[in-house]
Design a binder for these strands. Structure first.
Lengths: 342, 342
DNA sequence: TGTTAGCACTCATCTCTTGTGAGTGCTAAT
DNA sequence: ATTAGCACTCACAAGAGATGAGTGCTAACA
């Protein structure tokens, strides 16, 4: 991106801010009225023409004002955006909302989503801890019927996953208990990722092993943990998005709701953000959410990244306000999870 | 409802059917064209005026055709609707979609919802088995920290519920095992409802009991099972509703999405239908879904009612088509659950 | 040379008008 | 009892100004 002189920057910033506030195209006169740059509308127009040439602005039609393009927003976020930190009062209030003691993981996540969307007035997303990186705490088997077996897996953070598997051999409850005892001893404190690797190694080493119990335990736990569990996503406050003027037309509404309904796009997006640290902002066609932006952050406990949360809003959302909310929320959730795990 | 002569019935039926097909007000001429009653439009108009007087029809404005009122729909459903059974081919196809072996309960329910909304082109609802009426199979305790205890409860159908409780006394894993063994033996085969009653009784009888283990077991399981678990509801295909012309205005869309988002209204509704047998139809202001109808049915296994499923569509939805789908689906799900449980 | 006033021009939006057509209710004839 | 005929209503679409916000360009100005 070419350098912009100070005047251009000021004007771009003014346009972006005005547009964020009004959702309407911004005209040259409006700018001179609302900000006192000591410039005439005509001069502002010249600058605006330049900014349009650079692809930072565009006008919906000849006689409307300008609106920032995606590139314009990107520039704004990269170089002009100043995120003010939350005030202590706000922080305190947020902390107060996060009294999760005695709630189970799913409910916590849902509640976090609600709070996020409530604060931001946009849609809140929370992706629950990725299965592969959770830390093993306990595994239990429950016999159902026809050799079908319910496997219940509990992570250190109290996340419960369950899965039905087929066990060919007819194991009785007694044997199952032995097996789960064995596994609980053996796998304690490892992440699922590590458990998988360990199992794989052992399976190879002990192919010819005569220890029946161990053999069965290995094959059972393999079956239980082999395939990736689909990430679970909680979406809250989609209807708030429908209040935004950019989604006021029926077609846009339908598109938006369909997107939120499928969840797949959102999961991919949050997955992508998983690798990075801190708050991330995805804009527009970056993501498959036309006209939207996503502000996301990971949460984690001491053992590493666990999940991601964020806010989806219109591209012109109030970044300076939402970014710190997302950031602080992610930190709070991380702390809660640490506390729970300890 | 006053009796209607045959001609009036025929005309009412024609109007309802045409309106279901077109979502437009139906005029007198349109009726004589599409159905041959050997009547002139003027005669039809006379009848329509009568039907309007009775509150079965209304016209949006003077020079539009008539549309059925809520009462009109009610009359149609009660006395005119003929539900054709599914053809064998359709049944076979449906059965083929329902191969759920090896899936866990939540996934089954979600899939059922998807199929329902896919077939009906409206929104599908599935409410998971009511906790209180599930049959106890197994209970497990997992220690988390600070005396917080994760209780995992498994029903006979493989439904897993979990909950975090506070256990004041410091129990080690060994004692917990003993307790769960004791409870598993003691409570096997009872519904949660029965378990609760039993616990209550025993707690009273054995207040002064010196058997420490038993006492702890009782108080733990009481804490674990005491409060009602919120019914879980799966909603699918809301975006399909937005395609319907009655919800094409932004305001209607917002209202609809908000309703679906809160879920509470829908849960109450399905709860209400729980008591009855077979397919039920709720119309319009009966329920808090303006302009919508709900077709619902319960599913159950041999032990009794477990949950409910249904389809929410516009009031003018194609009842003759959707009713048998909902009916047959409920039967299929019941059978699947029986098979799983056996 | 950068800035600004002035001006012609564009174009979405609102309002007002008019025409059209589907549908109605009433009346009189069959 | 049924129906043809007719006047009437009213939503909706199309067209015509009027309005106003905003632009680009040019020429004058500091």
């Amino acid at each position: 991106m070419a350098e912009l002189n100070e005047r251009s920057q000021n004007i771009l910033e003014a346009i972006v801010k005005d547009y964020i506030a009004s959702a309407e195209p911004v005209g040259s006169r409006a700018i001179t009225r609302r900000h006192n740059f000591n410039l005439s509308p005509a001069s502002v127009r010249n600058v605006m023409a330049d900014l349009e040439e650079m692809g930072l602005l565009c006008s919906p039609h000849t006689s409307a004002g300008r609106i920032p393009t995606e590139k314009g927003f990107q520039y704004y976020i990269d170089t002009l955006l100043q995120v003010r930190d939350l005030t202590d009062t706000q922080k305190k209030q947020l902390r107060k909302s996060y009294r999760f003691s005695g709630m189970k993981m799913e409910d916590i996540m849902q509640e976090v989503g609600r709070i996020l969307s409530g604060l931001s007035k946009y849609a809140g997303l929370v992706m629950v801890p990725k299965f592969a990186s959770t830390v093993f705490r306990q595994i239990e088997f429950v016999r159902l019927s026809h050799g079908r077996l319910l496997v219940i897996y509990v992570s250190e953070t109290g996340l419960v996953q369950n899965k039905v598997i087929k066990a060919d051999s007819n194991l009785d409850q007694r044997q199952l208990e032995k097996i789960s005892n064995y596994l609980n001893r053996e796998l304690n404190g490892l992440t699922i990722q590590e458990v998988r690797e360990k199992l794989k190694k052992e399976m190879q080493e002990e192919k010819t092993l005569y220890d029946q119990l161990r053999k069965k335990a290995l094959s059972l736990s393999c079956a239980a943990l082999q395939d990736e569990v689909e990430d679970q996503l909680y979406v809250t406050g989609t209807s708030l998005m429908l209040e935004q003027p950019e989604f006021s037309s029926p077609d846009e509404m339908r598109r938006l709701i369909q997107t939120f309904e499928s969840k797949k796009i959102l999961i991919d997006l949050l997955d992508r953000s998983q690798s990075a640290q801190g708050v991330q902002i995805f804009i527009g066609s970056d993501i498959d959410l036309k006209g939207c932006s996503l502000i996301s952050a990971n949460f984690s406990n001491r053992k590493g990244a666990l999940g991601a949360l964020g806010v989806v809003g219109p591209m012109r959302m109030d970044y300076s306000q939402v970014v710190p909310i997302v950031d602080f929320t992610a930190q709070l959730v991380s702390r809660v999870l640490d506390r729970e795990a300890e």
